[in-house]
Measured scan of single mutants.
Amino acid sequence: DVEEQIRRLEEVLKKNQPVTWNGTTYTDPNEIKKVIEELRKSM
């Protein structure tokens, strides 16, 4: 579920933690925001 994935990513973003997405680890909050944007567009 895309909305659930977005929620999880936003939680990680709030905690300022790195997130691994599709085999890539993002540590930059701006990169994580881009991933969230892409997910929103795909909905």
Rank of each mutant, 00 (worst) to 15 (best):
D1E: 13
D1A: 11
D1Q: 11
D1S: 13
D1L: 12
D1I: 10
D1P: 10
D1N: 14
V2R: 05
V2C: 10
V2H: 07
V2W: 11
V2E: 04
V2P: 08
E3L: 13
E3W: 12
E3K: 12
E3C: 14
E3A: 12
E3V: 13
E4R: 09
E4V: 09
Q5G: 05
I6T: 02
I6K: 01
I6F: 03
I6P: 00
I6N: 00
R7A: 11
R8L: 15
R8D: 06
R8H: 14
R8P: 01
R8E: 12
R8N: 09
R8T: 13
R8V: 14
L9D: 00
L9F: 10
L9E: 00
L9K: 00
L9S: 00
E10F: 04
E10Y: 04
E10A: 03
E11F: 02
E11R: 04
E11C: 10
E11T: 06
E11N: 07
E11P: 01
V12A: 15
V12L: 15
V12F: 15
V12W: 08
V12M: 15
L13R: 03
L13M: 11
L13H: 04
L13V: 11
K14E: 12
K14A: 15
K14N: 11
K14Q: 13
K14H: 13
K14S: 14
K15I: 07
K15P: 01
K15D: 07
K15E: 09
K15Y: 12
N16C: 13
N16G: 15
Q17W: 14
Q17V: 09
Q17G: 10
Q17E: 14
Q17D: 07
Q17F: 15
P18S: 13
P18T: 14
P18K: 14
P18W: 04
P18D: 14
V19Q: 02
V19T: 03
V19F: 09
V19D: 08
T20L: 14
T20I: 15
T20Y: 15
T20C: 15
T20H: 15
W21Y: 12
W21L: 15
W21N: 08
N22G: 14
N22V: 02
N22K: 05
N22M: 09
N22L: 10
N22Y: 12
N22H: 07
N22C: 14
N22E: 15
N22S: 02
G23Y: 01
G23A: 01
G23K: 01
T24G: 03
T24A: 08
T24L: 11
T24I: 15
T25M: 08
T25K: 03
T25P: 02
Y26E: 01
Y26W: 04
Y26A: 01
Y26D: 01
Y26C: 01
T27D: 11
T27H: 08
T27L: 07
T27A: 06
T27N: 08
T27F: 09
T27E: 08
D28S: 05
D28H: 04
D28Y: 02
P29A: 09
P29N: 04
P29G: 04
N30S: 13
N30L: 13
N30C: 11
N30I: 12
N30K: 11
N30P: 03
N30F: 11
E31S: 06
E31L: 07
E31H: 03
I32M: 03
I32V: 08
I32A: 03
I32F: 06
I32H: 00
I32S: 01
I32W: 02
K33F: 07
K33M: 11
K33A: 13
K33P: 01
K33N: 06
K34P: 02
K34W: 08
K34G: 07
K34Y: 06
K34I: 08
K34R: 13
K34F: 08
K34C: 07
V35S: 01
V35R: 02
V35L: 15
I36H: 01
I36Y: 02
I36T: 01
I36K: 00
I36A: 01
E37P: 00
E37C: 08
E37V: 07
E37S: 09
E38G: 11
E38Y: 12
L39D: 00
L39V: 03
L39S: 00
L39Y: 03
L39K: 01
L39N: 00
R40V: 06
R40H: 05
R40T: 05
R40N: 03
R40A: 04
K41N: 12
K41W: 05
K41G: 08
K41I: 09
K41E: 11
K41H: 08
S42L: 13
S42F: 09
M43Y: 05
M43R: 10
M43D: 03
M43Q: 12
M43I: 13
